[in-house]
């Protein structure tokens, strides 16, 4: 591994002469740089997507996992009795911590976004809400539902799982898709570099023959090409990453109060991660070109 690293560093540090033995190419070089840049730009977005959906999945799973609500709908006269019954059940249910009857003010605050602040909560036949927290071990939601149905027929347990699970699953899937995209972008970059390296090698068949004839070793010949392509990939990917990061930074910000969606983007140390894209692209180009060069060289004596 150390040898490989040394070799890569030696290649990137370069040998001006080894560069000169291969004729310069203007147009294909620009194409390679452009493609590497475009790939890096896409990689930045795929990365932003998977990191943002990862955060989303974690937050939903975290924040919602530990709370649940019991909603009691009963005629005015029975409300207090059923609420008491529910509280009695909750206090004795293993895995439930701190059941708490929401006050009229709290319920009004919850409804305010929908109906305005002047809602006369006490005069409306609103259900009574009881909030509870799960302990580490959690509770058996099915068993609790059965007990509630038997002793307080107006009470419904909403453990949020019904709508939380698909959302968390979707966010997880989104993160996976982002990672798969990054992998595909890497492979596509390798394929693109291989194609253009093969084209360059074929176009320079005479150069390679002459070098081989005057006693150049395979690594020397390969190095001239490898250095070029790694350099181009590095340049292109650096530009693409920069533009991509600026574009992500300029995206409209997410609601800081922690609204429903987190913004697509990087947070804090997350901004470091895309900076790995250019060196990775250079590494991909290094290996792709090296493999292509050695494949071609072993076909000549």
């Amino acid at each position: 591994m150390n040898g490989v690293l040394d070799q890569m560093l030696a290649v990137l540090a370069g040998d001006r002469q080894a560069d000169r033995v291969v004729p310069p190419t203007g147009f294909t070089a620009r194409l390679t740089i452009f493609t590497a840049g475009a790939m890096a730009f896409l990689a930045v977005f795929a990365l932003a997507l998977s990191m943002a959906s990862g955060r989303l999945a974690d937050r939903w799973a975290d924040a919602l996992a530990r709370t649940a609500t019991v909603r009691i709908s009963a005629p005015q006269g029975q409300m207090q009795a059923q609420t008491d019954a529910v509280m009695a059940i909750l206090w004795t249910t293993p895995g439930v911590a701190d059941p708490r009857v929401l006050s009229a003010e709290e319920q009004r605050a919850l409804l305010a976004p929908w109906f305005g602040p002047d809602l006369p909560v006490d005069r409306l036949p609103l259900p009574q809400l009881v909030e509870l927290t799960e302990t580490e071990d959690g509770f058996d939601a099915e068993a609790l539902r059965l007990r509630l149905a038997a002793e307080a027929p107006g009470a419904v347990l909403d453990d949020h799982a019904r709508w939380r699970r698909p959302l968390v699953r979707a966010a997880d899937r989104l993160r996976l898709l982002g990672l798969v995209s990054i992998g595909l972008i890497g492979l596509a970059t390798a394929a693109m570099i291989t194609l253009s390296a093969n084209a360059a090698l074929a176009a320079n068949a005479q150069v390679i023959r002459v070098l081989r004839m005057v006693g150049a070793r395979d690594v020397y010949i390969a190095r001239a090409f490898v250095r070029r392509f790694a350099g181009r990939a590095l340049q292109g990917a650096a530009a693409g990453t920069l533009v991509g990061m600026i574009a992500v930074a300029l995206l409209p910000g997410a609601d800081p109060a922690g609204g429903f969606l987190t913004g697509l983007g990087f947070q804090g140390w997350g901004w470091i991660v895309p900076l790995f894209i250019p060196p990775l692209a250079a590494m991909v180009a290094f290996w792709a070109t090296r493999a292509a060069a050695f494949r071609m060289l072993t076909e000549m004596t």
Partner: peptide, 13 residues
């Protein structure tokens, strides 16, 4: 292949 390359450095063609 490297042996061959080194040998060719000793043979002018």
């Amino acid at each position: 292949r490297d042996d061959l390359a080194r040998t060719r450095q000793r043979i002018g063609v």
